[in-house]
Amino acid sequence: MTDEAAAPRGAGILRAIAQKRSTPPLAAAAAGGAVVPVERAPAPVPPAPVVIDVRNLSLTFMTNDGPVDALSGIDLSVHRGEFISLIGPSGCGKTTLLRVIADLEQPTAGSISVNGVTPEEARRNRGYGYVFQAAALYPWRNVARNVALPLEIMGIDKAERDRRVAENLAHVNLTGFERKFPWQLSGGMQQRVSIARALAVEPDLLLMDEPFGALDEIVRDRLNQQLLELWAKTGKTVIFVTHSLPEAVFLSTRIVVMTPRPGKVHDVITSDLPRERDLDIRETPEFLKIAARVRDGLRAGHSYED
């Protein structure tokens, strides 16, 4: 069982979407169907409500080699419907910041609110879906039961569980794989199952920690495209950790460039690319301009190591 087996289905959906895009009224309707305002560009439009508010946040790990400043003086506001990428070299604290938002790490200073409450309350309210670097599927559960796992924990009844499992597996083009076990799937398919599992919670906020880091370029491209479509369809807020520059620029409405030791926000770049994109956009001058600015930021973060 490989990704290639699912390719024709995925390609079909991509084609359908491409056709949709060629007719402006339909595309506008699709965007209008989402919760977000149609205008995404930075600017005079009153901004959507703030989902995550980080103020002067710091986190110091106490290790055997002494304290390590993972995060230092982070300020960040994320508005509803944004697609934010956190990018930076290893050790810049991007994953730590995401884990703080998810209440998987506790900050040592500063303040943070998620959905207007503390991260812990947000977690207890199941206010977000989290996609890890690895699929983290439970091997004793088949695909459908893996996707149903958070729903079982939330105490959602069987009929609704079945409905959401079917719906979200369809979102990631995995209909028909319900009875397979994780180890019978390729890495890309496993990661798609884990995305379906995060979506099944139906969170408004999606936290993704290098979800495609372990996948090959072609699979990654396809999943990036699917993720964008999903985001456009559902209007969720996404925070996406990556160390791939093209991935960050391709996906995001804003790119947060971070630098290591101590983990700091070096630059925040607002993308003026249209909300609807396909992979060809990566060859356009606008794309390259943003990519160049991000690369400058990454270089600056590395400069003192030379």
């Binding site: 439970y138 924990i153 919670v201």
Partner: peptide, 27 residues
């Protein structure tokens, strides 16, 4: 159980018993 599998349970705000029966005992 992997740390990442436990973190997953934490993001679901699963109780001790739920984590035990759905993750740690099977593992």
């Amino acid at each position: 159980a992997d740390r990442i599998q436990r973190d997953l349970m934490r993001t679901y705000a699963a109780s001790h018993g739920q984590t035990l029966f759905k993750l740690r005992l099977p593992a």
